[in-house]
Computed example of a mutant assay.
Amino acid sequence: MDLFDQISNDIKEAMKAKDKVALETLRNIKKYFLEAKTAPGANDTLTDDAALKIMQKLSKQGKDSAAIYTQQGRADLADAELAQVEVIEKYLPKQMSNEELEAALKEIIANVGAAGPQDMGKVMGAATKALAGKAEGRVISAKVKELLG
């Protein structure tokens, strides 16, 4: 079962369970999936990789929104955003721990032959491909700067 079908089935389950947060979040995800499926050149298909990228983007947006709401003293809105992010993250691959990320990046740095901060572009190119979905870009970037600096 692909991710699109999984989300569709989980919408039905959320309706039965009367889980409003999950239902709203899953419907929003499905809306983005349908937009991606019907986009020009998509041929009415959505791969799981493309679906994961959409969900990662939604998760990141939710976290960013929650941070802004928190800065503005709107804990109620921040909590709502974080509840939706929690639903989205159930479908995302497990994020790497700090130690796992550091080990993977050290290996990538050795493979690329990076010597210092001037090689950050080479390392980031390889790292973002190898670690796609397993760690956020800004976390990867910060760790690469630390290791090369």
Rank of each mutant, 00 (worst) to 15 (best):
M15F: 10
M15G: 10
K18S: 12
K18T: 05
K18Y: 02
D19Y: 08
D19N: 12
D19R: 05
A22T: 04
A22H: 03
A22L: 05
L23T: 05
L23M: 10
E24G: 10
E24L: 15
T25A: 04
R27K: 12
R27H: 11
N28S: 15
K30I: 11
K31R: 15
Y32D: 11
Y32K: 10
Y32W: 11
F33Y: 00
L34C: 03
A36N: 02
K37C: 11
K37T: 09
K37M: 15
K37S: 07
T38N: 15
A39R: 08
A39D: 09
P40R: 11
P40F: 12
P40A: 14
P40T: 09
N43T: 07
N43V: 04
T45C: 04
L46P: 00
L46G: 01
L46D: 00
T47L: 01
A51E: 06
L52W: 01
K53S: 12
K53T: 10
I54V: 06
I54R: 04
S59T: 04
K60D: 11
Q61F: 13
G62N: 08
D64M: 12
A66S: 09
A66E: 07
A66I: 07
A67V: 08
A67M: 10
I68V: 15
I68H: 13
I68S: 12
Y69F: 14
Y69R: 10
T70W: 03
T70H: 12
Q71E: 14
Q71C: 05
G73M: 08
R74G: 01
R74M: 14
A75D: 15
L77E: 10
A80P: 00
A80F: 06
E81L: 00
E81A: 13
A83P: 03
A83E: 04
A83D: 07
V85Q: 01
V85F: 08
E86Q: 13
E86W: 00
I88L: 09
I88K: 04
I88C: 04
K90T: 08
Y91G: 04
P93R: 03
P93K: 00
K94F: 01
K94H: 06
Q95W: 00
M96P: 06
M96H: 01
M96V: 08
S97R: 04
E100C: 05
L101H: 08
A103Y: 03
A103Q: 15
A104C: 00
A104W: 07
L105C: 09
K106V: 03
K106T: 09
E107P: 06
E107D: 15
I108M: 02
V112K: 07
G113F: 03
A114M: 05
